[in-house]
Amino acid sequence: MLRYKSLIVTSLQRKEISVATILFGTIISFYSIQPVFLSPSNIDVLLRITPELGIVALGVTLLMIGGEFDLSVGSVFGFIPMVTILLIESGIPPTLAIVSGLLISTLVGLTHGVVTVKTGIPSFITTLGGLLIWRGVSLAVTGGLPKYMTMPPEIIFFFSGKIAPFIHMQMIWFFALAGFFYYILERTKFGNWIYATGGRKEVARAMGVNTDRVKIVLFTLSSLMAGMGGIIQSIRLGQALPNQGDGLEFDAIAVAVIGGTSLFGGSGTILGTVIAEYLSRIIENGLIIIRAPSYYFRLYIGLVIVIAVTVNIYILRRSIRSRVES
């Protein structure tokens, strides 16, 4: 009996519990208003589009746990597919063009990281610069027009193919990357350094952790994930839009925070971000299904942020109390 009780207590102390509860409640609410919400075709749509943005949120989560922000992910999400198309147009084979595009995204992140760490300018500012620069380049190069992306079928399948009912390649990528990020964060030295760097940089330094290097790696990963998400979306759509990923930076930060990541760094989980990403997309999709005006999306996400963060703090306080008592 005691063991069951402690199991319940520990699961209640997990940060993901609040967001999981909200997710469950949201699904029930939409379904009771409009049963079409849980129709196989709608579920299929949800499972297909969520990973593109979820992959971006994974990188942003890790970076936020490390104590920094990346406001440029939305722009990189649009910029990298655009670069990939330009490379293909210049005669480079598609596979090589994608690899080069992803490599360029790591260089973009590396630049953000090095500039932030070496100058000491807050990442909020440096990546705000990145947001404007990469969006500006995309718009300038294309003149604001979409560009078509023609890819061989194998590549389309590799990034966005459907393997079985409800199972898409996007999902495989998302879960594989989420698993990889979980491994890095929870089961490696580097993950321990991420938590310490975001939690208290001076402590990490005093214990011999190269916090600058940790941050630069995280900026690089964040941009790489943004580029990856953007390429997957462009392959699915068959085109790259100059405004692709517009506003995604705030969406990704909101998802991380709803999933329990601290805005001050040092705390957060990958599972929380994955659940929150589904919640965010379900709210967006559900509002369309119940025919609410699309403007409501931001309003609801705002409400969910406030509720989720409040519940998280409440749980944290309770867990402090129970630990002191025991």
Partner: peptide
């Protein structure tokens, strides 16, 4: 010199 949000064990072995 301890990171406040990390567990005692992870702090002891940090670095």
């Amino acid at each position: 010199m301890l990171a406040p949000l990390m567990s005692v064990g992870r702090n002891i072995f940090l670095g």
